[in-house]
Computed example of a mutant assay.
Amino acid sequence: MLSPTLALKVDVDTLRGTLEGVPRLVETFQRHQTDATFLFSLGPDHTGWAIKRVFRRGFLGKVKRTSVIEHYGLKTLLYGTLLPSPDIGRRAAGVMQAVRDTGFETGIHCWDHVRWQDHVVNANAEWTAAQMRLATDRFSEIFGATACVHGAAGWQMNGHALRLSESLGFAYDSDARGTHPFLPVVDGITIRCPQFPTTLPTLDELIGMNGVTPDNVADRLLALTQTVSATGHVFTLHAELEGMKFLPVLNQLLSGWRAQGYRLGALRSLAAATALDALPRHELIYGSVPGRTGTLLVQGPASLTTRQS
């Protein structure tokens, strides 16, 4: 019997994360001889716009305990306000192509991270399709191919975006938080583009909560995976965190997960081992996750729908 897979999904949010964090992650994964999925933000870096989130409950607490300025850098936090917003896809296409050429899986995170994360939940079909088309077109321009995987910025989606998954050519997605792979059900219709949800908490959700520090966060995560999951796990890391200051933590995790018996890989590793028709169907709902402000897309109750998209 094959060991379950623990898939490594890298969300790349910013220009700095792409230029500095991504190459460090590539080198680390190569050293550990593991595949991973890199999901890129492909348009403008408007990170500075996120300052409006200061009015959200819990946001300032998160900023304090996760050292946002230290991880993202002051320059990045001024993009779109006091500094112009750089076009990530134009400035960092070479880095993205190098990831693909090294053999790693590449996919789409978003066109504009802040715009998507802050507006997609209530957006209409036209706005949603335009944002997704910008991302898919830029991906094709950079890589000369259609993206097969999408992982939503901030785990924020709407029904229009989920329904577009198949028509835009995605073979599988990782847009939600949950416990196991499933086929999403939207408005009573099953979408035959499987979701491989993030199953484990992220470092920024753990650090600063319940006595967790950068020094013991790896131990806390490894404790959560000690009982091996039959359906595997998806761990979301960030180029701006694990690719920079938290790189030593990532090294501990990769060694620890191997010692626990997991096969480390990319989302495509999970997809290759999954029979589409055998997947359960689940509604998608919005809910909260400990350590993260606001609500996000989560795996909801099982559905008995038989309608197909």
Results as ranks from 00 to 15, higher is better:
residue 1 M to H: 09
residue 2 L to C: 07
residue 5 T to R: 11
residue 5 T to L: 09
residue 9 K to L: 13
residue 9 K to M: 08
residue 11 D to A: 07
residue 12 V to Q: 09
residue 13 D to P: 08
residue 14 T to E: 04
residue 14 T to Y: 03
residue 16 R to H: 13
residue 21 G to M: 10
residue 21 G to Q: 11
residue 22 V to K: 05
residue 23 P to R: 11
residue 23 P to H: 12
residue 24 R to D: 06
residue 27 E to K: 15
residue 27 E to G: 06
residue 30 Q to F: 04
residue 31 R to T: 07
residue 32 H to K: 05
residue 35 D to Y: 02
residue 35 D to E: 15
residue 36 A to W: 12
residue 37 T to V: 09
residue 39 L to Y: 07
residue 50 A to I: 13
residue 54 V to Y: 10
residue 54 V to A: 13
residue 56 R to I: 04
residue 62 K to W: 15
residue 66 T to D: 14
residue 77 L to Y: 10
residue 78 L to W: 07
residue 81 T to Y: 03
residue 82 L to G: 14
residue 89 G to F: 07
residue 92 A to L: 10
residue 93 A to F: 09
residue 99 V to L: 06
residue 106 T to D: 08
residue 107 G to P: 08
residue 108 I to C: 05
residue 109 H to L: 08
residue 118 D to Q: 10
residue 120 V to D: 03
residue 126 E to G: 04
residue 130 A to M: 13
residue 133 R to W: 06
residue 135 A to F: 12
residue 137 D to M: 12
residue 137 D to E: 15
residue 138 R to L: 10
residue 139 F to Q: 07
residue 139 F to S: 07
residue 142 I to Y: 07
residue 142 I to V: 14
residue 146 T to Y: 01
residue 147 A to Y: 07
residue 148 C to W: 08
residue 149 V to N: 12
residue 150 H to K: 04
residue 151 G to C: 03
residue 151 G to A: 08
residue 162 L to N: 09
residue 163 R to S: 11
residue 164 L to S: 13
residue 164 L to P: 04
residue 166 E to L: 06
residue 166 E to C: 08
residue 169 G to L: 13
residue 178 G to V: 00
residue 181 P to N: 09
residue 182 F to D: 00
residue 185 V to L: 03
residue 189 I to F: 10
residue 191 I to Q: 14
residue 192 R to S: 10
residue 192 R to Y: 13
residue 195 Q to G: 02
residue 196 F to S: 00
residue 197 P to R: 01
residue 198 T to F: 00
residue 199 T to W: 00
residue 201 P to V: 08
residue 202 T to N: 10
residue 207 I to D: 03
residue 208 G to F: 06
residue 210 N to I: 00
residue 210 N to H: 13
residue 210 N to L: 04
residue 214 P to N: 03
residue 214 P to L: 01
residue 215 D to K: 12
residue 216 N to W: 12
residue 218 A to G: 12
residue 223 A to I: 01
residue 225 T to G: 04
residue 226 Q to D: 12
residue 228 V to L: 11
residue 228 V to F: 00
residue 229 S to A: 15
residue 231 T to I: 01
residue 233 H to R: 08
residue 237 L to T: 07
residue 238 H to A: 06
residue 241 L to T: 13
residue 247 L to P: 02
residue 249 V to I: 15
residue 249 V to N: 08
residue 250 L to I: 09
residue 258 R to I: 01
residue 264 L to S: 13
residue 265 G to S: 05
residue 265 G to E: 04
residue 268 R to P: 01
residue 268 R to Y: 03
residue 275 A to T: 15
residue 276 L to T: 14
residue 281 R to E: 00
residue 285 I to P: 00
residue 285 I to M: 09
residue 285 I to Y: 02
residue 286 Y to Q: 12
residue 287 G to W: 02
residue 287 G to R: 01
residue 288 S to L: 00
residue 289 V to G: 00
residue 296 L to V: 05
residue 297 L to G: 00
residue 298 V to F: 00
residue 299 Q to L: 00
residue 300 G to W: 02
residue 302 A to D: 05
residue 303 S to F: 10
residue 305 T to F: 05
